[in-house]
Design a binder for these strands. Structure first.
Lengths: 141, 141
DNA sequence: TTCGTTGCAAAGGATTTGCAGCGTA
DNA sequence: TACGCTGCAAATCCTTTGCAACGAA
């Protein structure tokens, strides 16, 4: 998986290809896990010692809007971000310590049996988000 | 379901029964859905016009620690809170518009078929949180 | 009286924004 | 050149904390 695919996609939308943008995408790609904006920035500083927080957030938001990354909030210290390598559903084993994720290609149903034995499940979360009958009209478009 | 059960539980732990505390629990009980700290505070102001944010948050944290309420972050604008009426697993249909929740007593597996037809599922989230083999030693106690 | 609770004010952390200058295409 | 991108500084939003006064048991 390489960064150009995503950068090309951005370019097609009229966004520019800057070194910092590329670095952000590349770091996220190397990780394949959820990392916080803070952690991402620390890694970026190896290449761009003076990069600013706002640039990081602005790019994260852009990448999120373009559906290149996804955001998740587990644990403390703000959101974490992760590259979207596929259009699969978002079912993951998420390590609370390192944030590493492992994609589960199966749907939630009938899934427990596929969880590797050596992954220690502490808690799980299953939420169906949508609109109840009363609010269907409130649904956007 | 009535507030005294929860207030008694707090009292047994050495916490005091104040009017504001009671009001917070009662409002959460009336809701049976996730509401934000902000929304909760607005409702509290009907009874205690001068209640402060800190009191709300301090009580929410206490109730959370005592496992009387649970916290979830979906959408924007900070966490939302909801009374825990049972010790069931936490599987819900969450309405993105009103925050109303409906408990699913079944486990995530083999569940889709039980979702009411009139609930419009926009997205779902299934996360198993825990520790991967490499991080097991990092797990708290 | 004791010890938990509260309001106030201030601090904290994460994230966003206005603006002017910079860099890509 | 044009317009998107960036850093800076400041602001915003949500949440927490220290402190002294207050209130429940």
């Amino acid at each position: 998986m390489d960064a150009d695919k995503f950068l090309r996609q951005l370019k097609e939308q009229g966004f520019k290809l800057t070194g910092k943008r590329r670095a952000i995408v590349e770091i996220l790609l190397e990780q394949n896990r959820y990392i916080s904006a803070k952690e991402l920035m620390e890694k970026l500083k190896a290449v761009y010692p003076h990069i600013s927080v706002d640039t990081v957030y602005r790019n994260l938001n852009l990448l999120k809007e373009e559906k290149i990354i996804e955001e998740s909030e587990f644990g403390e210290g703000g959101s974490r971000f992760r590259i979207r390598c596929s259009t699969d559903h978002h079912h993951h084993l998420v390590c609370l310590a390192c944030g590493r994720t492992q994609t589960l290609h199966e749907c939630p149903m009938d899934l427990m049996r596929y969880v590797p034995e050596d992954f220690q499940v502490v808690r799980h979360r299953f939420e169906l988000l949508g609109y109840c009958p009363d609010c269907k009209t409130a649904a956007p478009h």
